[in-house]
């Protein structure tokens, strides 16, 4: 069966069962391996992507819910040459250790900062709560998100993209 999905601005047909979790379609069909398989039951946040600007757990989201919706993955935030503000901030703060949780962290942070670029530390902590990190780089992650918020505020003052 074919499902139509819009991922990172590109609309395409995918040969997948409508009940397939989005995560599997992203990784197995579209070869977008940024979103990670962690727990598979929506409890760790490693699979977080954005749907119409909201952070969503792709491992428990069947693709049948996503017709006409805009899915954004970590690959849609920037490239190796031109990282997006959130990616650059995570690099600058060296916020990853093993890195497995980081794409999910970045996607949830991106959703937060798009909705509220001036989110303070309390708001960031509250928003990132569903995402687990077992290495313990939380403090750097929070610093990186605050740094990204600052960059986004400057960008938007300069008329640039978030």
């Amino acid at each position: 069966m074919a499902v139509t999905l819009t991922v990172n601005g590109k609309t395409q047909q995918v040969d997948a069962d409508p009940e397939t979790p989005l995560l599997y379609v992203l990784r197995d069909h579209l070869e977008l391996n940024g979103a990670k398989y962690g727990c598979g039951i929506g409890q760790c946040g490693a699979c977080t992507v954005m749907v119409d600007g909201e952070a969503v757990l792709s491992c428990v989201t069947p693709v049948l819910l996503l017709e006409g919706r805009r899915v954004t993955t970590i690959e849609g935030l920037g490239t190796r040459e031109r990282p997006g503000p959130i990616q650059q901030a995570f690099i600058d703060e060296q916020a990853a250790q093993c890195g497995y949780c980081i794409p999910g962290m970045m996607m949830r942070a991106q959703a937060l900062l798009q909705a509220n670029p001036s989110a303070d530390e309390a708001a960031i902590r509250a928003a990132l709560e569903p995402n687990l990190c077992r290495c313990g780089t939380h403090m750097r992650i929070i610093k990186a998100v605050m740094r990204a918020g600052e960059a986004m505020r400057q960008n938007s003052r300069g008329g640039g993209a978030i």
Binding site: Q43, D52, E54, V56, L66
Partner: peptide
């Protein structure tokens, strides 16, 4: 159901971001 802090608990992911009213 958000996770309890400091202890194990029941938890359920939120579907606000994906489900529309019809669904």
């Amino acid at each position: 159901l958000p996770a309890a802090r400091g202890e194990p608990s029941a938890i359920m992911p939120a579907y606000r971001g994906v489900l529309n009213a019809d669904q």
